[in-house]
C-alpha cells in the first residue's frame, strides 16, 4: 500500500504536474513579489498586467535578435525600470487616480505589444521561436520526491526567483530600508517626521515592482514557451494582485499563494487532456474560481497597508491650526 503511494508520487505524470505547477506560478510570483514593494510603500500598481506583457515582448524580441535569452531579460529589466518611473511620475508626483491610471496603462500595453509584434515580425503562419531557457536539474535535491520536481527541476530564472523571495523577506523584516517602506505605507506623515523621504522611497518601490513584473512577463516568453503570443499574460498581472492579498503582503505567503494558483492551473491543463465531458472553458476558469474562493476566507484576516492608494502631499496636508 505504502509502496503504491510512493510509486504514484514518483510517476512521470505526477512529476510533470509538479514541475508545471511551479513553472506556471513563477510569473505571478515575480509580479506579486514586486507588488509587495509598492503596496507596502503605499502605492497601488494596478498596471502589473501591462508591465508583464511589455516584459514578455521585450524579453522575446531582444532574445530573438541577440540570440541570448539573458540579454533579452536584461532588456526587459530596463523597460521595467522605465515603466516604473513613468508610473511613479503619474501616481506619486502628479497624484493621478491610481486605479484609473493602472487600468489605462494595461489596456495601452496590451494593444501596443500586439501592434509592435506585428510590425516587427509581420503576420506569418509559422510564428517566430527562440530556444527557451533550459531546465537545470539540481544534483541530489531534484531527486527528492515531490519537493524535487516542484523546486529543483526548474529553469535558472526560477532559482533566481527563489532568491528574490528570500532577499525581499530580508529587506522587509530586517533592513532599515524595509522599515522605511512599511512606514511610508502605513503612516507617511509619521515616516516623514522620522526622516524618511516618503517620495523617494515610493519611487524606488514602484521601480522595483516594475522590474519584477517585467521579469515575470519575460519568464512567460523566454523560459516557459519560447514564443510570444498576443495578450499572453492573460490576466496574470491581475491575479498577482489577488495573490498579494492571499499572501498577506508577505514574501513567503506570496510564494505559497502563487504556487497554489500555479498548481490549480497545471491541474486544469492536464484535466483538459483527459477528454472529460466538460467544456474546456470551465476548466480554464478553475484557478480563477479557486482564487476567488480563497479570497473569501482571507479577506477578513488580511489587512492592507493603511495608506495604500493615498497620494502623499509633503507638508501640503491641510494642517490643523
Amino acid at each position: 500500500m505504502i509502496g503504491d503511494l510512493f510509486s504514484f508520487l514518483t510517476s512521470s505524470i505526477f512529476e510533470g504536474f509538479l514541475t508545471a505547477s511551479m513553472r506556471l506560478a513563477i510569473p505571478i510570483m515575480l509580479a506579486a513579489i514586486g507588488g509587495i514593494y509598492n503596496e507596502r510603500a503605499g502605492i497601488s500598481n494596478i498596471g502589473m498586467e501591462g508591465f508583464m506583457i511589455v516584459g514578455s515582448l521585450t524579453g522575446f524580441v531582444v532574445s530573438y535578435y541577440s540570440g541570448s535569452v539573458w540579454i533579452g531579460i536584461l532588456a526587459a529589466i530596463f523597460l521595467g525600470i522605465l515603466l516604473g518611473l513613468i508610473m511613479g511620475y503619474f501616481e506619486i508626483t502628479l497624484k493621478v487616480n491610481q486605479v484609473v491610471f493602472g487600468i489605462s496603462l494595461n489596456l495601452f500595453c496590451v494593444g501596443l505589444t500586439s501592434f509592435l509584434f506585428r510590425i516587427i515580425f509581420g503576420i506569418t503562419s509559422n510564428s517566430p521561436r527562440i530556444t527557451p531557457l533550459p531546465t537545470i536539474m539540481i544534483p541530489i535535491l531534484s531527486k527528492i520526491p515531490v519537493i524535487g520536481p516542484i523546486l529543483f527541476q526548474q529553469t535558472a530564472l526560477a532559482y533566481i526567483t527563489y532568491i528574490l523571495v528570500l532577499i525581499t523577506a530580508i529587506i522587509m523584516y530586517r533592513s532599515a530600508w524595509g522599515m522605511n517602506i512599511i512606514a511610508a505605507g502605513e503612516n507617511p506623515e509619521a515616516a516623514e517626521t522620522m526622516g524618511v523621504d516618503v517620495i523617494r522611497t515610493r519611487y524606488y518601490a514602484i521601480i522595483i515592482s516594475g522590474v519584477l513584473c517585467s521579469i515575470g512577463g519575460a519568464f512567460l516568453s523566454t523560459a516557459s514557451t519560447g514564443l510570444f503570443v498576443q495578450n499572453m499574460t492573460a490576466g496574470r498581472g491581475y491575479i498577482a494582485l489577488a495573490i498579494l492579498v492571499i499572501g498577506r503582503w508577505d514574501p513567503f505567503g506570496v510564494f505559497i499563494a502563487a504556487l497554489l494558483f500555479g498548481a490549480a492551473d497545471a491541474l486544469q491543463l492536464r484535466t483538459q487532456l483527459f477528454n472529460f465531458d466538460i467544456p474546456y472553458q470551465f476548466l480554464v476558469m478553475l484557478p480563477y474560481i479557486l482564487c476567488m474562493v480563497v479570497m473569501i476566507f482571507f479577506s477578513k484576516s488580511s489587512r492592507a497597508p493603511a495608506a495604500l492608494g493615498e497620494p502623499y502631499d509633503r507638508g501640503g496636508k491641510k494642517s490643523e491650526i
Binding site: I182, A183, E186, A190, T193, A306
Partner: peptide, 10 residues
Amino acid sequence: HQHFMLIPTL
C-alpha cells in the same frame, strides 16, 4: 503629536 506618529504594525 496629538495624532500619534507611530507605525501600528511595527
